[in-house]
Each structure stands twice: as structure tokens, then as C-alpha cells.
Write a protein that binds this DNA or RNA. Structure first.
Lengths: 124, 124
DNA sequence: CTGGATCCTCGGCGATACTG
DNA sequence: CAGTATCGCCGAGGATCCAG
């Protein structure tokens, strides 16, 4: 019996499916944003600057549904809604941040490889 | 000066951009598959079972371009091409596997949250 | 066996306008 | 301020046919 091998075909499907939950254009970014501090709808919107309100709504709904964020409505006037990470969401931040850190740290290497690849294609 | 905070808006863009490189439908899965062992085109295709040959080609090209995999042609007859992870690719496997492991380990919690959310919507 | 070229569909996503 | 509804674009990605 394999122990936590994770490369078994079955797990592979599991991973890709799980990744697709969080691998859309905005989920990760929103989670990272909320990881810093809970924020209101507009705050997140401004912080991300580039996300449409439709996608922000959809993304937050999805994250809420999956148990990564909570949505708290304060019946003030005008109403305000605060989004925050759940325990689950905070836990997820750890591996996500690790991956993000690695990617950011290695952007150079990727771009170097890319330039090499492209120039080889031209002259090659 | 911030120390590796990673949630600064600038890094956030960096992350999302970097993630989009690897966050498409197949890149991660292919990388994980090659992490187990170098494989030929058809082997990867069969192992993944569900990817079209067009997407496999495109994915491998992308990964090769970004310096994550190598492509070695053996001029046999019929020709065979072997794909393998570069050092960069192998390094990336570490954080990716960490995330994948976490995701797989927490699928239950996500699905539970999801069911709760959905039933609340109905009755609420 | 490897993989390029084409066609076509579907869905993500943005823009805009409107409601409470 | 927070959220919904609608429309339209565009690109990811699958199916298929063809070539070295």
C-alpha cells in the first residue's frame, strides 16, 4: 500500500479538481488579500483594483460556499458586509503562500528560460 | 521596509500572474506526473487519460518554454520523445505537492461546508 | 508515435444598467 | 454600499484530419 504518494492517478484527479476550485483567476488573490485582514466588499475591490464587481461577488460566493471565508452583514446604513477567512481559509494560506513565494522568487529563472527558448526558436 | 510579506499589492499581481502560468487546466497535473518519472508523450497521455493531444502538446510546450521540463527526441523508428523535469521543475514540485497534499487532505471539509451552504440556501 | 492545423463550442469574465 | 441581471466578447480547450 502506498503512503501519501500523491502521484497516483486517483490523487492526481483529486488534485486537479481541487486546484480548479481555487485556480480560477481571482480566488487565490482574494484569499491572500483577506489573509492580511478582514475587509469589506469595497475594500477588497479597491485593493485588487482590476476585478469587476461581478467577479468579486462570484469569487467571494464560491469561497464562502467552500468554507474558506465568512460573510458578515452589518445592517448599518448604508449596509456594510465584512469578509474574513475561516480557520480553513487561514490554513490554506500556508501552502498557497509557500507556492506563491516560490513562484515570485523564481520569476527570473522562468523568464530567462523563456527568452532562451524563444531565441532558440528564431535562430534554430 | 516589509519583510517577505507577500501580501503587498505588487507581489499579489506577481503571484496571480505566476499562478496563471501554471494554473491552467493541465500544467500542474503534467508536472506531477513527470515528477514520478520521465515519460514519453504517449505515456503521459495515457497516464492522464482525459487530456486531448492538442492540450498535452501545448501544455508540454509551455512547461518547456518556462524551463520546467526538457524535451528529448530519440530518432528511433518510430520516433519517441521523452519529457522530464528540469531542476527548476523539480524544485517547483515541492510547494505544489504541499498545496496538493493540503487540498486533498481537506476535500472533506470543503464538501461539508459546501453541503451546509447549499442546504442553508434552500431552507433559508 | 509525435504533433501540427482547423473548426467549433462553451464558459469565464468584463461592461453596463438597475435594485434595496 | 452591496448585490443582481443581462449581454457580448474572447480565448481555453476538445474533436478531427493530416504529416513526418
Amino acid at each position: 500500500m502506498e503512503q501519501g504518494h500523491l502521484s497516483e492517478t486517483n490523487d492526481l484527479r483529486c488534485i486537479s479538481e481541487a486546484l480548479s476550485r481555487v485556480g480560477d483567476k481571482w480566488s487565490i488573490v482574494v484569499v491572500m488579500e483577506l489573509a492580511a485582514a478582514p475587509k469589506r466588499f469595497s475594500e477588497v475591490r479597491r485593493a485588487l483594483d482590476g476585478i469587476s464587481q461581478k467577479m468579486l461577488t462570484a469569487t467571494l460566493r464560491g469561497l464562502e460556499r467552500d468554507g474558506f471565508v465568512t460573510r458578515t452583514v452589518y445592517p448599518t446604513k448604508p449596509p456594510s458586509v465584512e469578509y474574513a477567512l475561516t480557520a480553513l481559509g487561514q490554513e490554506m494560506v500556508v501552502p498557497v503562500r509557500a507556492l506563491g513565494t516560490w513562484l515570485v522568487a523564481n520569476v527570473e529563472r522562468v523568464e530567462t528560460a523563456r527568452r532562451l527558448f524563444d531565441s532558440d526558436r528564431q535562430s534554430g
